[in-house]
């Protein structure tokens, strides 16, 4: 997202805000969905995030990492939505979450990744323990920096590293030679694809 767009939002430009929503809504929706587990609540959470951004737009230039900021508010709002709907009052921490629904991965048509391989990958991700899946999703699918994940979920960097490492090993076990064995095939595809 260009700094220019943020400047325009600060000055009350609604079209810039529209572009801002286009840019971030997908990732924030997927993440909110991951936490709350249904479409209506996820849309409610993400719209609240954008409403907050618009209302506080005067302060946007002070935000160092917009991505981390947005994920953090989304996470907090999603957790409080979850508490509200489930009637529970757990503290806001990773431990308070019993599940995380990682959104289904797809592949562009020209990527030569087959339906079967995608299914294998998706079900392998689904088989990860919830906390691990949550961290893995942020780190490897949404590609958030580890330190930002650690800050927003209020866990140590070592914990983030541990979950990601565990997830990668788990996936390799399920997808490597001893399992579905799609990783060696993939090399071939990627090689074909690159030339």
């Amino acid at each position: 997202m260009e700094a220019n767009v943020i400047y325009r939002i600060v000055n009350g430009d609604e079209r810039a805000f529209d572009a801002f929503m286009d840019f971030y809504s997908g990732a924030l929706y997927r993440y909110a969905y991951g936490v709350v587990g249904n479409r209506e609540d996820a849309e409610e959470v993400v719209s609240d995030v954008f409403v907050e951004i618009w209302k506080n737009r005067k302060g946007l230039l002070e935000i160092e990492s917009m991505q981390a900021y947005l994920y953090t508010i989304t996470y907090r709002k999603a957790v409080s939505m979850l508490r509200h709907t489930s009637g529970r009052a757990d503290s806001v921490s990773l431990d308070g979450l019993e599940n995380f629904t990682a959104s289904t991965l797809t592949a562009p048509d020209q990527s030569l990744i087959s339906r079967e391989e995608l299914d294998a990958l998706n079900s392998a991700i689904e088989s990860l323990p919830p906390k691990c899946r949550h961290v893995f999703y942020l780190a490897k699918i949404e590609r958030l920096p580890y330190n930002e994940i650690s800050r927003m979920l209020d866990v140590s960097l070592a914990t983030v590293n541990y979950h990601v490492g565990y997830a990668m090993n788990h996936l390799k076990k399920l997808l490597g030679p001893g399992g579905k064995n799609i990783l060696s095939l993939l090399l071939l595809y990627l090689a074909t694809y690159n030339f």
Binding site: G26, Y29, R30, E43, L105, T106, I113, K140, L183, L190
Partner: peptide, 26 residues
């Protein structure tokens, strides 16, 4: 295998989604 898994994850994207409902909520 690490490299292949990373490339696989890189090549895949989460499903596209229609944000018009979110925008109208906002």
């Amino acid at each position: 295998q690490d490299v292949r898994l990373e490339s696989l994850l890189d090549a895949c994207r989460p499903e596209e989604f229609d944000n018009s409902r979110i925008k109208s909520l906002v």
